[in-house]
Design a protein around this nucleic acid. Sequence first.
DNA 1: CGGTATCCCGGTGGATACTG
DNA 2: CAGTATCCACCGGGATACCG
Lengths: 129, 129
Amino acid sequence: MQRPYQCGIDAAIDVIDGKWKVLVLWALDSGARRFGETKRLLPGISEKVLAQQLRELEADGIVHREVYDQVPPKVEYSLTERGRALNAALAPLNAWGKERIALLEAEAEAEAEAEAATVAAVTAVAPAA
Amino acid sequence: MQRPYQCGIDAAIDVIDGKWKVLVLWALDSGARRFGETKRLLPGISEKVLAQQLRELEADGIVHREVYDQVPPKVEYSLTERGRALNAALAPLNAWGKERIALLEAEAEAEAEAEAATVAAVTAVAPAA
DNA sequence: CGGTATCCCGGTGGATACTG
DNA sequence: CAGTATCCACCGGGATACCG
């Protein structure tokens, strides 16, 4: 995606685009986090990709990178004001997604029950088979 | 992205993931649209990709596909109740994006002015060059 | 009109190894 | 601890052509 944008959504998506971006956002929402700490909050992400995503978010003014000049190295990442605003704007989408998850689970459960009923019926008809 | 989701955002993004999905959502927000009509609203999209995105949105219960059995063929796409809810959940993100666009434009303008000032200064110092 | 079918390219992100 | 460096696989989507 690229400027010029067709609408605000494009501009927002451009910022949160990337497999881990919103997860990073959530991870930092509760306060400043160190690199390794953040990595631990995102099981499966590689260091390369985490660094990438953080750099991009930083370039977009969403996260702040604070380097402490000490040994061993220490770097802290935190949300900027804009990052917190973005996270807030994401809240309704989160709510919608949770509802969707609930619906999907309800469906899966209904299917499982239907299958169980079928198995029971078959067993009743052909118990020796 | 894939189930199980880490949070609601994941579930939502899973649905709107695809280069044109949200644009399709906006296009259908104002009412039912025919295939070609929708295509015209999304300059640059190919028929293959539009069909794909619509099918995926349909599978996720976001759009409804109504086929009219007539010649020439007519198919109408519209948002379902859930689709409208999703669109509503996207509104704050849209607002955030618009703000971002405004900021970017302000920056670009400031840069342009700075450059203009530089050019003016240089011209003033070396008017004959 | 409203699609499928094919082929192909570029970019994202995964795996692994190395470093200040 | 907090990163680079490198190489590579995958697949989303673009171009083009054809069909009921």
